[in-house]
Design a protein around this nucleic acid. Structure first.
Lengths: 189, 189
DNA sequence: CCTACCGATCGGTAGG
DNA sequence: CCTACCGATCGGTAGG
């Protein structure tokens, strides 16, 4: 394998943070994962906290890209929700470590960075709220509170990191279809 | 305050594990919370791991009690689901620390104890699966896979620990009603 | 429940 | 990226 890059370090950190938690991962653990010493990591990053920041930024970016893609072009509210669901599943499966670290470990960031992570998350949830509000206004969904509706939908999605195995019986596409059906029913589509 | 009891120690451990995570809590942190030294805790428990085991056992027991109460007497599938939702919300709100530690920190248990925690969780989920399967069989719900249906319902519920504030606008009862409505719609009741 | 302490491990640095 | 190391903190113990 070639020289270890900063991106390699961040990717490996994401894997360990997702598996063992931020506080359950030591810099020496991370060094082992990459075949070098814990102290050698400091030529790539200046602190363990910085690694958490970088992993979470990558997770947040993936969710944002997925949301932008789901809104592109014009489509019915139900169709946009189907795309949002499929995009969210895709991020959770294809960028599992970063996504899980973003969802589960952001609370261990220091205040300033944690506030940024919360803002990134709120921005993403805002896309969902907007779509649901449009659906309620246009009569395509029942009279749900868009705040609760988006939380409920995202709750079902985010829980995937705890049980879904991409190597299991259910394919990513089938899963997205099932969740979209459940969410759309729940929103009264 | 009277002498610190073993139950006091376990309750305080639950609070810290839920707030800061198991690996983010030191025995000295826990001692501070109780007004004594970290080393003094070892007259109440024999290890930090034991505290995690005890907190999680208490969380699991609350969920089991709630499930048993929801099934008592005879009621329609929709009514049992409403009761299961209300019971779950109640555990999450009234026993937040133990419930959250059960849900989020059980993965840090050592193998044997972790397997027990997984079995307790599976047993509880089994109640949900059974009720949903009954509902599908009796035509009270649409043709959902009971495994997916129970995971989806519990995903919405378990996410509460991350956003619901009992002191906020939404009362526990209203929340339970909203979630029950969403879940029942999602299951095609 | 405290005093006094243990070896192990933590995040991190200086210098090459 | 390693060598060699730092002070701080970790879970835990002996003895009272």
């Amino acid at each position: 394998m070639a020289r270890t890059s900063r991106e390699d370090v961040i990717a490996a950190a994401g894997r360990l943070f997702a598996d063992r938690g931020f506080h359950g991962t030591s810099m020496r653990d991370l060094g082992d994962e990459l075949g070098l010493l814990g102290s050698s990591l400091y030529s790539h990053v200046s602190s363990k906290e910085e690694l958490l920041v970088e992993v979470i930024a990558r997770g947040a970016a993936k969710f944002d890209e997925a949301a932008a893609a789901a809104r592109a072009g014009d489509a019915s509210v139900a169709e946009v929700i189907r795309r949002l669901v499929a995009g969210h599943v895709d991020v959770l499966v294809e960028h599992a470590s970063e996504a899980r670290t973003f969802l589960d470990e952001a609370r261990y960031l220091e205040t300033e960075e944690r506030d940024k992570a919360i803002a990134m998350r709120d921005n993403y949830e805002g896309v969902w709220r907007k779509v649901i509000a449009d659906g309620v206004e246009g009569g395509e969904l029942r009279q749900v509170d868009p705040v609760l509706g988006s939380i409920f939908a995202l709750s079902t999605l985010n829980a995937l990191v705890r049980w879904y195995d991409p190597a299991g019986r259910l394919s990513k596409g089938e899963l997205a279809d099932d969740i979209a059906a459940y969410v759309l029913e729940g929103l009264g589509a």
